[in-house]
Write a protein that binds this DNA or RNA. Structure first.
Length: 169
DNA sequence: CCCTGATTCGC
DNA sequence: GCGAATCAGG
């Protein structure tokens, strides 16, 4: 990925707007959040309010320089769809935003057992599908486990915003 | 566990 | 210059 002028501009704008590095990376497409952070640093526009306190960083001496061993990660394909709109690039592309109906082309919710309210147990994911007032309303119904009222997939969707909210002090 | 930004360092 | 790995914190 090349940091074109447009992309850098978008980066700066979004960063100034207070979006997190991962969100910016997701919006730019084709780059990781680390790339965004690294770029931000190079642009010398790091500090933005106080996201993370600058703890006394002083650890990182041991580097087994035996070989140039670095990056066990595989290359990421990633379909980059960069619109690069110069105006209001507000994103919010929530994966499961509209659970109203589930088109086959949508790769969001893994499965859906479409359970009725009366079918729910302590073991079933209680993530609602669709409008509770609608006739098509149902619950996810997958194995919820003990971690919470949702299945693993929906737990993330439900709890990620919470963690984000937490930092908003 | 998830996330956040910060830093280092091989390329 | 770039970004993955790693760190440190919430």
């Amino acid at each position: 990925m090349n940091w074109t002028d447009e992309r850098v501009e978008t980066l700066k704008k979004l960063w100034a707007e207070g979006l997190s590095a991962s969100q910016i990376a997701a919006q730019l497409g084709g780059v990781s959040r680390n790339a965004v952070i690294g770029k931000v640093h190079r642009l010398k526009l790091s500090s933005r309010g106080r996201a993370t306190s600058q703890r006394t960083r002083q650890k990182k001496p041991p580097q087994p320089g035996t070989t140039t061993t670095r990056r066990p990660r595989n290359t990421r394909p990633m379909t980059a769809t960069v619109g690069a709109t110069a105006l209001q690039a507000q994103f919010e592309e929530e994966p499961v935003a509209r659970t109203y109906l589930q088109p086959v082309g949508n790769v969001v919710v893994p499965i859906s057992r479409k359970l009725e309210l009366t079918q729910l147990t302590e073991m079933t994911c209680k993530w609602p599908n669709g409008d509770p007032l609608s006739d098509d309303f149902s619950f996810c119904g997958n194995e919820a486990g003990e971690s919470g009222p949702y299945c693993g997939y929906h737990s993330r969707l439900a709890y990620q915003p919470a963690s984000e909210r937490r930092r908003s002090r």
